[in-house]
Amino acid sequence: MISAESAAVFIGSSIRLATPLLMGGIGELVSERAGVLNMSVEGMMLTGAFAGAVGSWATGQPILGLAFGLLAVLPVALLQAWLSNTLRANQIVSGIGINILVLGATTLGYREIFGERSSDEIPGFGKWAPPFLGDIPVFGQAVFLQVWIVYLGLAIAIGTALVLRFTAIGLAVHAAGMEPRAVDKSGLSVRGIRYGAVTFTGLMSALGGTFLSIGDIHTFTEGMTRGAGYLAIAAVIFGNWRIGRTIGACLLFGAATALQFQLPAMGVDIPNALLIMLPYLLAFLAVAGLVGRQSAPASLTVPW
């Protein structure tokens, strides 16, 4: 039997591990809904993680690190937006290029800035549990004691869902990905909407990245996102471009990752590789049409 304690730990770590995916995934969802397949989520997250770590280490203030992370991603996001909108570049190619560039730049920057001090812990955020929820026996601390960014992420996810559903901005974003001509004819700027969407993806991804470096583990390592950005894209596909299902996919992927640590502890012998592979496998099955009909935005990857 699984004890309540270990279930609680599992749920808690699933949420923690899902958080960076969730933020990147929400960001990516908005940009894909607006018609930009933004492959540079990985690079954007890495930028956030690196700049957040540097900012926090230099100032000793994690909150300044967070601000620094969000600021540093802007040029990356604007580069992606410029390439895929104004220059009408292949969105996949430009995204992969940015990822390579960011991986190189952050690795170099990390060696130059931290060098020998690389084992130092970087000041990071503490954990916090909401009142009442944190007091629930067994589950309270294990599930709800999280870095506050987790709660911020959830709030943004809900906010994004509401904005997409009930506001003019949400309508414009949806239309820009579905039928950009209608947006253009209505007097709105397709490019403007898409620039905004990509910038939002950048900010969200950077938030997810800073959570990784100064929220979760309080250090930076080379290429520390390890494909989380691609996983976020997979979550959007798996979620069929719907926000609720995307959030669900992120939690599922987070749980799959948590199992890697949980199962060996429980004495279950499942190859580690299989668990790491699981989210990609699920996403693959989803795009292969085995998990219901897929309905991507009609103008995804088509520059305006």
Partner: peptide
């Protein structure tokens, strides 16, 4: 010299060529 420098060079090449399609076309 960190091998990351070569990565950066590669990244710049890809980004530049992706963007250059605009002028070529």
């Amino acid at each position: 010299v960190p091998s990351a420098v070569v990565r950066i060079i590669q990244g710049i090449i890809v980004v530049a060529l992706a963007g250059a399609v605009y002028w070529i076309d």
